[in-house]
């Protein structure tokens, strides 16, 4: 309460002091983050604008349903919740690191910074897995009157509307033999090499019979902007996480070398902390825009 009274009594704007009782470095960090919020905001709003200008948009639960080690089980939202929790927890450890800095507790800063770095690295690992899974994924789609097998890239999107049986029946006749073999090999649930038949030896007509059209859930190609925005925005966010991890590592080394102890304060840790929380904050919105709605 004593502090509140002092805050009210001080003439903040008369010059000779910070009107916000804040050291300029923190002020600059806050306004930088505000600026960065507009960068991310512009990306996400562009994504929204494009999404609103399309007649069809893929359902995120269909796109993001994989989990490492779970094969082809349908687990919508599972993996991304793990990523979200990793980031929230790393934010908590960062708060603790900043608090330890307040108390000039060098060992505490080192401990909690270390766990923050671990959290950041784990998040980046998850993102790398997700990207790799999406890019190398094998999805049967109907495009240009033929069937094809593609992953999610910036140039093609495999999650369009489900194709009609009639269209598929026509398209399958125009599909090159090589693709037919691969389609047959995918079996029922996109599970390549499920059966042990030597499909390459079959005739085209038998191949077509062997393809499990029902089980493949063949779709048309979806809006390509989906991939561009997904990789662009999560990539830009991942770049922020990456730079945050690097900054945290530098802070860890500086703490270890007593730079801040000699300086008498851990303001740099506070500023780094603001940046790290901002990265978490952005993820909250990326999570919302790409995975939830």
């Amino acid at each position: 309460m004593a502090t509140t009274a002092a805050v009210q009594q001080t003439k903040w704007w008369t010059g000779g002091k910070s009107p916000f009782n804040l050291e300029y470095g923190k002020l600059m960090m806050w306004y930088f983050l505000m600026s960065d919020a507009f960068t991310f905001g512009a990306f996400l709003i562009s994504y929204g604008t494009i999404r609103f200008s399309q007649n069809f948009w893929p359902d995120p639960n269909v796109v993001f349903n994989a989990f490492p080690g779970a094969g082809h089980a349908n687990l919508p939202l599972a993996f991304v919740s793990v990523m979200t929790f990793i980031l929230i927890i790393s934010s908590v450890t960062m708060v603790l690191a900043v608090h330890a800095g307040h108390n000039n507790d060098k060992q505490g800063v080192i401990k909690w910074l270390f766990w923050t770095i671990v959290g950041g690295a784990a998040f980046l690992g998850c993102q790398a897995w997700e990207w790799h899974h999406l890019i190398t994924g094998k999805h049967a789609i109907l495009v240009n009157g033929q069937l094809d097998i593609v992953g999610q890239t910036t140039r093609i999107n495999p999650w369009g509307d489900l194709a009609s049986q009639a269209d598929i029946a026509t398209a399958i006749q125009n599909t090159p033999r090589e693709t037919l073999v691969r389609l047959a090999e995918m079996g029922g649930h996109g599970h390549e090499g499920a059966a042990h038949t030597n499909f390459a030896a079959l005739s085209n007509a038998d191949l077509i019979k062997a393809i499990d059209v029902e089980g493949l859930h063949i779709r048309e190609n979806g809006p390509v902007a989906f991939g561009g925005y997904f990789y662009g925005i999560t990539g830009f966010h991942g770049f922020h996480v990456f730079s945050g991890v690097i900054i945290n590592i530098i802070m860890l080394i500086m703490t270890q070398k007593d730079v801040f102890a000699r300086r008498g304060h851990y303001l740099m840790i506070e500023k780094t902390g603001l940046y790290w929380h901002f990265v978490d904050l952005v993820w909250v919105f990326v999570f919302l825009c790409f995975y939830l709605i």
Partner: peptide, 24 residues
């Protein structure tokens, strides 16, 4: 501080369209 980052976003997306085959 509030408007230049939006240009940056636009410029980055345009660079992607030019070099990575995206369709923003």
């Amino acid at each position: 501080v509030l408007s230049f980052p939006v240009l940056l976003s636009g410029a980055i997306l345009l660079l992607f369209d030019r070099n990575l085959g995206t369709s923003f």
